[in-house]
Amino acid sequence: MKVNGKHEFKISREKLWSYLMDPEVLAKITPGVSKLEVTGEDQFKTISDIKIGPVKGSFKGKLNVVEKTEPESFVINMEQHSKIGNAHVKVDMKIDETENGNAALIFDGNAKLSGMIARTGQRVLSGVANVITKEVFEALEKHIEENEATTATESKVVEKNEKVESTPLHSKEKRQEKIVEDKLVERDNTIVETNSVKEKVIETVTMPEKEKVTSTNAATTANESGLLNSIANFFKSIFGSK
């Protein structure tokens, strides 16, 4: 599963670099991590206590920062293991300088999923990842804002080119949704334009597709939507934390 995009910050490259090299900040913006424990130079043990649906769990993982070229680029390698699946993530981080001297963070990542999250709902997860990525950068902006009281923080998402991966198969509800979606999105490009569309996809799948045979709402969480919630939560743990 691919996640990529670009985010502009109204600070210099060097400043952004120092933020990103701070384990606390790194923890904030790195997929799946709430705490980083330093285990060596640029090597961290990741800790995330997450409640996933009906199960509370501690998620083990490790994170390495490698190929550091200050202040231009670095690579994050991360592994997360849990009951409902594992993720091996590699993200290429590049910091470009814009014409007006700001830093533009370009990220290009690939997550290899395995276990239940790989075979259940994986194809809607890239949509989830997209939403979460946005949240991650908003959190980082907020953090920078708090620390750079004098610095303007009107950074914005200037480009998001995460391609929705081709989804040749759809379960029934997704097929139908696809049709609606196709009508909403311009047909001649495969880029999903708006978050509302993405959220709609997620929401549609989370809801039981038919009320014909269903139970009380509370009961539904016991299984179907519970599973999807679990996956969505897990994914939050992979791609960002609040």
Binding site: K212, V213, T214, S215, T216, A218, A219, T220, A222, N223, E224
Partner: peptide, 12 residues
């Protein structure tokens, strides 16, 4: 009413 009994907890 028809329900899927795998989405109902026994306590419910």
């Amino acid at each position: 009413h028809a329900v899927k009994s795998c989405t109902v907890l026994a306590v419910q």
